[in-house]
Amino acid sequence: MLQLNIKNETSRLRAVVLGTAESNGPTPTIEEAYDPKSLEHIKAGTYPVEEDMVKEMEAFLKVFQKYDVKVYRPEIIKDYNQIFSRDIGFVIEDTFIKANILPDRERELEAIQYVIDQIDPAKVVRPPEEVHIEGGDVMPWNDHIFIGTYKGSDYKNYITARTNMAGVTYIKELFPNKIVKEFDLVKSKIEPRDNALHLDCCFQPIGKDKGIIYKSGFREEADYMYLVNLFGKENLFHIEREEMYNMNSNIFSIAEDVIVSEKNFTRLNTWLRDKGFTVEEIPYAEIAKQEGLLRCSTLPLIRD
């Protein structure tokens, strides 16, 4: 049996599901694009090719192996995008929560069923249908659970709005002892530089008390200030609009002092090293074209 344990984003990782880029399928049509960034690259003819994405994910896998992390991969579904395992489920404490994802993506959950089968069935839950919640929006942080959402009345018009207020309420009821804090995120169907697809596109905690943040990703100044007050302004690395677009906040922590980052994130990686972090740099710029990066490709199961 897998004894799940996830209390935060940075404790020493022991087991993880890493997505796969194998048999990724043809470049989507314009109509098939789920997010504005993919759309931009489909139109420009720069959408990533499978061979490059497989190489990038292999580099990520090698880092996990270096740190002796147990890595599970999804079963391959032919011609199907299975890179972003963060969307399909997430773990809080010892509970695996299946996400109600876009209906087209249901098969991604089936591809990791062999992992879910190793978990105590009493610890696997699926929210009711009206609850929308994806792993990219959910961040356990010790006594807190941070959740990205969209409170606009036009929620249903946005394919980029992935977690609703029913999702926030559901987590509050599931974890009554936690401080569940939701953040209202800026969404755009057409401009990827103004679209925080998930909370991890504009914020992520690192280390013990630090974080990476994009102020303009929050619709309400008060939500941004909540994090400033919690972490302290001097502990937050503020990214700019273009850095947000390139997914600088979507790195991944293997431990409190070890971070996997994209090799082109020069400003961020320099800051991290100055703060004492070990930075494992890998190429991930092709996968980033689909509006997802390192955190999006992982589903952590066990941390110390």
Rank of each mutant, 00 (worst) to 15 (best):
M1G: 06
L4R: 00
L4P: 02
N5F: 09
N5Q: 05
T10K: 00
R12C: 11
L13N: 02
R14K: 13
A15V: 06
A15M: 10
V16S: 01
V17W: 03
T20I: 05
A21C: 12
S23V: 08
P26G: 09
T27L: 10
E32G: 07
Y34F: 14
K37Q: 11
K37E: 10
L39M: 11
H41W: 08
K43G: 07
A44P: 07
P48I: 11
E50F: 15
E50A: 12
E51N: 09
A59H: 03
A59G: 05
F60C: 00
F60T: 04
Y67L: 11
D68E: 14
D68S: 09
V69M: 01
K70G: 00
K70E: 06
E75S: 14
I83H: 07
V91M: 08
I92S: 07
I92M: 04
E93C: 14
T95F: 15
F96H: 04
I97G: 04
K98W: 14
P103K: 09
R105E: 10
R107Q: 12
E108S: 02
L109S: 02
I112Q: 01
Y114W: 08
V115D: 01
V115I: 14
E134S: 01
G135H: 00
G136P: 02
G136L: 04
D137K: 00
M139E: 05
P140V: 06
P140E: 03
D143A: 13
I147H: 02
Y150V: 05
S153H: 13
D154C: 12
Y155S: 10
Y158N: 05
Y158G: 04
I159F: 14
R162P: 01
T163F: 06
M165F: 11
A166H: 14
L174N: 08
F175G: 01
F175K: 03
N177R: 10
L185D: 00
L185C: 06
V186F: 11
S188E: 08
S188L: 14
I190P: 05
E191C: 13
E191F: 15
D194A: 15
N195A: 12
H198A: 06
D200E: 08
C201E: 04
C201L: 11
C201N: 04
C201M: 14
C202Q: 02
Q204Y: 13
G207L: 09
K210R: 15
G211N: 02
I212T: 03
K215H: 12
G217D: 01
F218W: 00
E220Q: 14
Y224W: 09
M225P: 05
V228F: 13
F237E: 09
H238F: 12
E240W: 14
R241H: 07
Y245N: 00
Y245S: 05
N248C: 10
S253I: 04
S253H: 06
A255L: 01
V260N: 02
E262F: 09
F265H: 00
T266F: 13
L272A: 03
R273T: 10
K275M: 15
F277M: 08
F277C: 03
T278M: 10
V279A: 02
P283I: 12
A288N: 09
K289W: 12
E291T: 12
L293H: 04
L293I: 15
L293N: 02
S297F: 03
T298M: 10
I302M: 11
